[in-house]
């Protein structure tokens, strides 16, 4: 059986089960009420896309810096990278957001909640990126640095011409996976009142008292973003495997 048919069968069975569940609870649908607020969904979805893209760029920068720290031979620099990564990965994003917004941002007078939101989300995602990048750098065998030194490349040329082009290939699949997490994690920005997709769905729910009609489109809106990205990640991964 071809793979796409298998996928289709699984999705159909799953949808059937959910339909049965809905039928049994006799849910009274009210799509009309929610339809009035369609603009809010669109606007929230676009905000989520924008925030995720911004956070992807910033967290790539932070993650690269932190990865260089992690790979450093200087104990102090390595420690800075390690403490950052472990603190961020060991605590909930919710706590980081609340601390970042109500304490740190207030203390330094940063008022734009969108900027704060993107920064905190980037710091969070950057810790995971750092580990991905560190792994990518570590996966390049020592012999490559030796060969680069032997032909007389400088350390910077070695990084630019030899290490990074190889490491980039290795990290692209996990970075695509990280972007999937980033998009879903951005839903937590609703707690600091950023008008992204999830917060808007919550508001529509509050206006219409139609919980499922508000949240099912929410799920669909995220899937539209995450499913292609997951597929991209898997495709990139298969490519890396073939080239090895």
């Amino acid at each position: 059986m071809p793979r796409w048919i298998a996928h289709l069968v699984v999705v159909a069975v799953f949808a059937g089960l959910i339909a049965v569940a809905f039928a049994r609870v006799n849910y009274a649908w009210n799509w009309a009420g929610v339809w009035e607020y369609r603009q809010k969904f669109v606007q929230g979805w676009l905000t989520t896309v924008a925030i995720s893209l911004a956070a992807l760029v910033v967290s790539t920068l932070i993650g690269s810096l932190a990865a260089l720290c992690l790979a450093s031979r200087r104990p102090l620099v390595e420690a800075i990278g390690r403490v950052y990564v472990e603190l961020i990965r060991g605590t909930p994003l919710l706590v980081q957001l609340l601390l970042g917004f109500y304490v740190v941002a207030s203390a330094v007078g940063l008022e734009n909640r969108y900027v704060v939101g993107v920064l905190v989300l980037s710091l969070f995602s950057g810790a995971y990126m750092a580990e991905i990048f560190r792994g990518g750098l570590a996966a390049i065998p020592r012999t490559q640095r030796d060969s680069a030194r032997a032909i007389g490349l400088t350390p910077w040329q070695t990084l630019r011409l030899v290490i990074l082009p190889q490491a980039l290939r290795l990290v692209l699949p996990p970075v695509a996976g990280q972007l999937v997490s980033l998009i879903k994690d951005s839903s937590l920005l609703s707690v600091i009142a950023i008008s992204e997709f999830t917060l808007n769905a919550q508001e529509v729910n509050a206006f219409t008292y139609s919980t499922l009609e508000s949240y099912l489109p929410l799920a669909a809106g995220y899937l539209v973003l995450t499913l292609p990205l997951s597929a991209l990640a898997r495709w990139l991964e298969s490519r890396v495997r073939f080239e090895a």
């Binding site: 012999t143 490559q144 060969s147 007389g152 190889q166 290939r169």
Partner: peptide, 28 residues
């Protein structure tokens, strides 16, 4: 480094950069 640029070294294996073609390995 200047000295290494004036000589050539070949190891047992894994000398080439795998992301570059043979030609690009020579040109680099």
């Amino acid at each position: 480094r200047d000295y290494r640029r004036s000589v050539g070294t070949v190891f047992q294996a894994y000398n080439l950069f795998p992301h570059l073609s043979a030609l690009d390995n020579l040109l680099l």
